[in-house]
Amino acid sequence: MPSRSRTAAGRPHVICHMVPSVDGRIVTGEWPAPGSLHSEYERTAATLDADGWIIGRISMEPYAGRAALPRGSGARIPRTDFVARTGAPSYAIAIDPSGKLRWESGSIDDDHAVTVLTERVPDRYLAFLRDRGVSYLFGGKDRIDVPAVLRKLRQRLGIRRLLLEGGGKINGSFLAAGCIDELSLLVAPVADGTLGAPALFDTAGGAPTRLQLVSAEPRRGGLLWVRYRVVRRRR
């Protein structure tokens, strides 16, 4: 077990766990990847001892489902956090600022579903989430404040270690906010080479971050599991 980097007080220790190509691309659909990729990804994730995982809306859509949203505005619902369940074995967390996911239920297998919203979502959507047993946290009025969301995940749900498994923009927003503590990369033996394809981190203006190598371990199918610790600047 590698030593842990310093984590800001009051938030979870965040590990960005991803499968990039050797050139940092992350859309795997067309890759000639080894058949062991998915199983190795899940196996390595299980060793990271996380209390939950967080991704963006588009990535969460296949898991959430396509339930119908009820008509009508309904009663006014205060913009306060709603926690439908605590003490879950794990939490599946989506960042969905506008409230577009159509959750079938409040569970994904044994994981409790949590969605992160902005205050601009309509009342009927909040009523829909409550009816489905989906917890929701507000991450800001008009845009998501990543550090504030992480503090809420720790305070409201007791999450201490969190896997970040998003797309380039979600991962990039965490990186730019200084909210990634480790990288766990299962590098696939693939050179993607697609111009403009989503990368591991996509941030406006960039967010160069110094890393320290912790370990590198070959895995089945030519995969390479590489772990880095984020080096914090001394204040």
Score class of each variant (00 low, 15 high):
Arg4Glu: 08
Arg4Thr: 06
Ser5Trp: 09
Ser5Val: 07
Arg11Met: 14
Arg11Pro: 10
Pro12Val: 13
Pro12Arg: 14
Pro12His: 14
Pro12Gln: 13
Val14Gly: 11
Ile15Leu: 15
Cys16Gly: 01
Met18Tyr: 04
Met18Gly: 05
Val19Ser: 04
Pro20Lys: 15
Pro20Gly: 08
Pro20Cys: 15
Ser21Asn: 04
Ser21Thr: 02
Asp23Glu: 04
Gly24His: 09
Gly24Asn: 08
Gly24Tyr: 05
Arg25Thr: 10
Ile26Met: 01
Val27Glu: 12
Val27Gln: 11
Thr28Ala: 12
Gly29Tyr: 13
Gly29Ile: 12
Glu30Trp: 00
Glu30Phe: 03
Trp31Pro: 00
Pro32Lys: 06
Ala33Met: 05
Gly35Val: 15
His38Lys: 06
Ser39Gly: 10
Glu40Lys: 01
Tyr41Cys: 01
Glu42Thr: 10
Arg43Tyr: 09
Thr44Trp: 11
Ala46Gln: 08
Leu48Thr: 13
Ala50Glu: 03
Ala50Gly: 09
Asp51Thr: 04
Trp53Arg: 05
Trp53Phe: 12
Trp53Ile: 03
Ile55Pro: 00
Ile58Ala: 13
Met60Glu: 12
Tyr63Glu: 11
Ala64Asn: 03
Ala64Leu: 10
Gly65Trp: 13
Gly65His: 07
Gly65Asn: 06
Ala67His: 08
Ala68Thr: 14
Ala68Trp: 14
Leu69Val: 09
Arg71Tyr: 15
Gly72Leu: 15
Gly74Gln: 07
Ala75Arg: 14
Ala75Asp: 13
Ala75Trp: 14
Arg76Ala: 13
Arg76Leu: 04
Arg76Glu: 11
Ile77His: 05
Ile77Gly: 00
Pro78Cys: 15
Arg79Trp: 10
Arg79Ser: 04
Thr80Cys: 12
Asp81Met: 08
Phe82Thr: 11
Ala84Met: 02
Ala84Glu: 08
Arg85Pro: 04
Thr86Cys: 03
Thr86His: 07
Thr86Val: 05
Thr86Gln: 05
Tyr91Val: 02
Ala92Gln: 12
Ala92Ile: 10
Ile95Phe: 09
Asp96Asn: 02
Ser98Thr: 13
Lys100Asn: 07
Leu101Ala: 00
Arg102His: 03
Trp103Lys: 12
Glu104Gln: 03
Glu104Leu: 04
Ser105Lys: 04
Gly106His: 03
Gly106Met: 05
Gly106Ile: 03
Ser107Val: 00
Ser107Asp: 02
Asp111Cys: 01
Asp111Arg: 10
Ala113Pro: 00
Thr115Pro: 08
Thr115Val: 05
Leu117Lys: 14
Leu117Val: 15
Glu119Ser: 11
Arg120Trp: 04
Arg120Lys: 07
Asp123Asn: 14
Arg124Asn: 11
Tyr125Lys: 01
Tyr125Glu: 02
Tyr125Val: 01
Tyr125Met: 01
Leu126His: 04
Ala127Trp: 11
Ala127Val: 01
Phe128Ser: 06
Phe128Thr: 10
Leu129Phe: 03
Arg130Phe: 12
Arg130Cys: 10
Gly133Lys: 08
Gly133Gln: 11
Ser135Gln: 08
Tyr136Lys: 06
Phe138Gln: 06
Phe138Asp: 11
Lys141Arg: 15
Lys141Ile: 13
Asp142Leu: 06
Arg143Thr: 12
Ile144Cys: 09
Ile144Tyr: 05
Ile144Gly: 09
Asp145Ile: 14
Asp145Met: 07
Val146Met: 11
Pro147Cys: 09
